[in-house]
Write a protein that binds this DNA or RNA. Structure first.
Lengths: 190, 190
DNA sequence: ACCTGAACACCGTTCAAGT
DNA sequence: ACCTGAACACCGTTCAAGT
C-alpha cells in the first residue's frame, strides 16, 4: 500500500486555521451568525466538530476572534499619503472598508463587541499615520482617526440594519448618504 | 381599592413585559449578554422559564428586540430646538446617548444587528426634525442625522471595546475625544 | 389567564481512545 | 500529530397539564 503523504484516509486536505476561518466566514455570510455552530462548521469542513479544537484550542471564542481579524483588520495605505492628498487616501480607505463591512454584515456585531482589540488597533494606527504624514497635528490626527473609524462602522451598522429588513421600495440611497457624511467628517479635519 | 388582586399564591407580583425587560437588562448589565438565558431570566423573576413565553410569544427574539427598544430609542428634544441653538441640542442629545449606550454596553451588539429597526427610526427622525427646525435644508438634514447617529454608535462601540479590555494605565481620554469628534461632525453641518 | 413539568432537538466542550 | 465517539451540562422551545 503506497500512501500519499499529506492526504489522509478520507482523501481530504488536512485542516488548517486559515481554512477553518474561511469556511466559517462563508457560513456566516450565507446563513447568518446564528447558524455558525461548531457542529455545522465541522460538517462544512467534512470533519467532526471536535477536530476544530485541535487548531483552535480556545474553541468558539477563538473562531469569532479570527473572523473579526479577517474582516475588520484593513489598514489604510500609508504609503499612498506621500503621492496623493491624505483626504483622498482616507476617502478611498473608508469606501473600501464600508464595502467590506457590508459584504460581511453578519460579523458586524462581533466587530462591535470587545473581541480582538488588536484588529482595530492596527487599523486606527494606520489612519493616524496617514493624517500625520499629511501634516495634521498629533492631537487632531488622533481625534480624526477615531471619528472616521467610528463613523464608518456606525454608518455601516445603520445601513446593514436597514437593508437587511425589506425590499428597496422607499430605498434610501445609502451610498450617496455615506459619501456625503464622509465628506462632512473629512472636510472638518484641519 | 382594598384588595390586592395582583398577588398570586406565591406572594409574587405578576409577570409583565416591562418587568421582564428590566430584569433582563439587569442581567446583561451585570453579567454580560452571553449569560442572558431564558432559564436564568426565569430564576431572576422567580418563575419557570416557560412562563416568559406567555408574555413574549416570540421568545428570546422578542426579548432582545425589547432590550434594544428600551436602550436605543431615545429621541432628541425637538421642542428645545426653538429655544436654543440646534447645535447645542444635538450636542446634548449625543452626550446623553453615548452615556446611555456605554451604561448598557452589553446590548450594543444587538443595537448594531438588524433587530427592531423602529427603535432607531424614531431616534433618527427626531434628529432630522431638530435640524430642519434649525433651518438646515432637507437633504443636508437627512445626511447629518445619519452621520451623527452613525458617529455616536460607532464611537461608543470603539470606546466600549477598549475600556472593557484592561485597566486605565495608558488611558485614552475617551470623553474628550468623543466631544472633539462630535464638534467635528456637528461643525461641518451648514 | 397564567404558570408548571416533562420532553425534544440542539448547543459548546471534555476526555479517553483510535490511527 | 491529528482526528473520532461518547458523554456532560447546558440551551431555546413545544406541548399537555395544572390552578
Amino acid at each position: 500500500m503506497v500512501r500519499q503523504p499529506s492526504i489522509n484516509a478520507q482523501n481530504r486536505a488536512p485542516l488548517s486555521t486559515e481554512r477553518i476561518i474561511e469556511t466559517a466566514l462563508r457560513i456566516v455570510d450565507g446563513q447568518g451568525l446564528a447558524r455558525l455552530t461548531m457542529r455545522r462548521l465541522g460538517d462544512a469542513l467534512e470533519v467532526e466538530a471536535m477536530a476544530i479544537y485541535h487548531h483552535l484550542p480556545r474553541g468558539k471564542e477563538q473562531l469569532l476572534d479570527g473572523l473579526v481579524a479577517h474582516v475588520a483588520s484593513v489598514p489604510a495605505d500609508t504609503g499612498a499619503a506621500a503621492r496623493e492628498s491624505w483626504r483622498d487616501v482616507l476617502r478611498a480607505w473608508a469606501a473600501d472598508y464600508r464595502t467590506r463591512l457590508l459584504a460581511h454584515a453578519g460579523v458586524l456585531p462581533l466587530v462591535v463587541t470587545r473581541r480582538n482589540p488588536a484588529a482595530l488597533t492596527t487599523t486606527v494606527a494606520s489612519l493616524r499615520e496617514v493624517l500625520r504624514r499629511g501634516g495634521v497635528a498629533e492631537d487632531a490626527a488622533a481625534v480624526a482617526a477615531h471619528t472616521l473609524l467610528g463613523y464608518v462602522i456606525g454608518h455601516a451598522a445603520l445601513e446593514a440594519r436597514d437593508t437587511a429588513e425589506d425590499g428597496a421600495d422607499r430605498a434610501i440611497d445609502w451610498e450617496a448618504r455615506f459619501t456625503a457624511g464622509l465628506d462632512l467628517v473629512i472636510g472638518g479635519v484641519r
